[in-house]
């Protein structure tokens, strides 16, 4: 058993667990996108960032790939973490503005503007499809090509691969292919319509559990605290 500290509380993890698995076990919510149970952790979307260590040496790591270590001090919801996550969402939004998953994330984290030029590539290169194809479907039909800003996911020579059985696993798992919510302001790039709705939580939520990721913003818990 490995003993760590998460958001100030002592937690125990089994040998071989990641920080993300440990957090999930204790019910601490960490947003993920390129992570999927049943597929190897990849660490591409950087949403599951957490802060480890203390003082000037504290830094952010992706919890899906970072192993649980004895004595590790983890914070899942600091300002630093949320700020970085917001920027990641803004970056993803700028290349796949029509993805429902990303739109929802934007709403959840209060990302209300997008300051980059929209590229509309509909792919955020999270690699879920690549891993799905190789690990679950034993396919190896698609993969990453090129590098840096020219990186893409495709079949060899961009034509139908002999390995592909048209199983559809890649499409099933893709977070960017799904149509976005057709809410009140569907036509704008950042809708955020759900942010204006009344908060659903009426119970007291502390920093650990607040689903808004920004404790106190909706005002609900602040009221609770006062009374």
């Amino acid at each position: 058993m490995i003993t760590m500290k998460m958001n100030g509380m002592e937690v125990k993890a089994e040998e071989g667990w990641t920080v993300l698995e440990t957090a999930k076990f204790y019910g601490l919510e960490i947003p993920t996108l390129c992570h999927h149970e049943g597929l190897t952790p990849y660490g591409a979307c950087r949403l599951c960032l957490v802060e480890i260590g203390e003082g000037p040496k504290a830094r952010l790591v992706s919890s899906c790939t970072y192993p649980a270590e004895e004595g590790l001090v983890v914070h899942t919801d600091t300002r630093r973490v949320v700020q970085a996550r917001r920027m990641m969402i803004e970056l993803m939004l700028s290349v796949a503005p029509n993805s429902r998953v990303i739109q929802d994330l934007a709403s959840k984290f209060g990302v209300t503007r997008m300051r980059f030029k929209i590229r509309n590539e509909e792919c955020i290169l999270c690699g879920l499809c690549v891993r799905m194809c190789a690990e679950q479907m034993d396919g190896k039909a698609i993969g990453f090509q090129n590098r840096g800003y020219q990186r893409k996911i495709s079949t060899p020579f961009d034509i139908r691969s002999e390995e592909c059985r048209l199983c559809g696993g890649c499409m099933y798992i893709c977070p960017a292919c799904q149509l976005r919510c057709q809410g009140p302001q569907a036509e704008t790039a950042i809708c955020n319509a759900c942010l204006t709705m009344d908060p659903t939580c009426l119970d007291f939520y502390d920093e650990l559990q607040c689903w808004m990721y920004d404790a106190g913003r909706c005002g609900t818990c602040v009221r609770e605290k006062k009374s």
């Binding site: 190896k140 039909a141 990453f144 090129n146 590098r147 079949t155 060899p156 691969s161 390995e163």
Partner: peptide
């Protein structure tokens, strides 16, 4: 392209893995 396809068979590695390396 032909050489890479043959190489994939000779080495028994999926073609896409060779392409990934060759384009990286």
């Amino acid at each position: 392209a032909e050489a890479l396809k043959t190489l994939s068979k000779l080495l028994k590695i999926p073609l896409i893995d060779i392409i990934s390396v060759a384009t990286f």
